[in-house]
Design a protein around this nucleic acid. Structure first.
Length: 276
DNA sequence: CAAGTTACCTGACGGC
DNA sequence: TGCCGTCAGGTAACTT
């Protein structure tokens, strides 16, 4: 489900509802996500502690605790987090609930269970950029993410530009939707060999990626099927899609029919006239 | 070692 | 109505 904008929207939504709250109980469905849920570790180290920070890094949410430990949550394809009243009817695929001290609870819902929950002890938190995020690329909004950087990362690689953008070691947070939309905005064909892009083209792409991501966050993310924010509201950036899911429709710039192509097993949409 | 493929899961949808 | 194949917003572990 969630790419960077959706994770950011969830992060901003749950942050004010979590900071300052004390965790009073933790329950799990017992089913494993990508990895087994560290229920006992959380119960040993998290109960009674107050949540102090809620941040995003790549597509991970980082929930920091008063004594320095940290919960690291990845939502996979269908994961979501929301704050509920304990008496609210529980969705079918809720796998973890963290009870809070103000008669609310944080629920993790994930039908496909591709997400993951990790719990880092204080010493692991300090070095997480060198361990957990060692191979994670720079944030798209960081200074490090630049035309020169991309020129360097593409050099000597036999790889289409869309697959390069979707490689999290190159840049964090860009998934299928936003790779498609950014390439349309920059007028670059998704299958174009990355190493053939000029510095100017990379520069335009960096600008467009940031613009698309920023707008998507402002729209509350994209809801194709079921994405909702912490208040269970849908995003609406999907009404601004120019190519994603629009095979056969007229290009918004030149009216040419949008085409679909499979790249690395992922659906890729583009205007054959605008994108070269 | 880089690049391509498969596996992990559930659910929705279209065709028959 | 239901059975089957295909597809889905992600990523790591395989194979080639």
């Amino acid at each position: 489900m969630p790419e960077l904008p959706e994770v950011e929207v969830i992060c901003r939504g749950i942050r004010p509802l979590l900071i300052g709250r004390r965790v009073t109980a933790i329950m799990s469905s017992g089913k494993k996500l990508r990895h087994p849920i560290p229920l006992e570790v959380m119960q040993d180290s998290m109960l009674g502690q107050t949540i102090t920070t809620v941040e995003r890094r790549a597509k991970f949410l980082q929930v920091g605790l008063q004594h320095g430990e940290m919960l690291i949550i990845h939502l996979g394809m269908t994961g979501n987090l929301g704050i509920f009243s304990p008496s609210a009817v529980q969705a079918k695929h809720v796998h973890i609930r963290w009870s809070l001290d103000n008669d609310t609870e944080l629920r993790y819902n994930d039908s496909r269970r591709f997400g993951s929950i990790r719990f880092l002890q204080r010493d692991e938190v300090a070095k997480r950029e060198e361990t957990l995020f060692k191979t994670t690329g720079p944030e798209p909004f960081s200074d490090e993410f630049s035309a020169d950087y991309l020129l360097q990362r593409a050099k000597g690689k036999s790889l289409g530009v869309k697959l390069l953008l979707m490689t999290n070691q190159v840049v964090a947070g860009i998934g299928n939707i936003y790779a498609n939309e950014s390439l349309f905005a920059a007028e670059i064909h998704p299958a174009r060999q990355a190493q053939t892009l000029t510095r100017q083209e990379w520069s335009r792409l960096v600008i467009k990626i940031r613009k698309v991501l920023r707008q998507a966050i402002e729209c509350g993310g994209s809801t194709i099927r079921d994405f909702v924010n912490a208040g269970q509201e849908r995003g609406y950036f999907q009404i601004n899609f120019h190519v994603y899911g629009r095979e056969g429709e007229a290009c918004s710039r030149c009216s040419t029919k949008i085409e679909k192509l499979k790249l690395g097993g992922r659906a890729s949409f583009y205007c054959p006239k605008c994108q070269r």
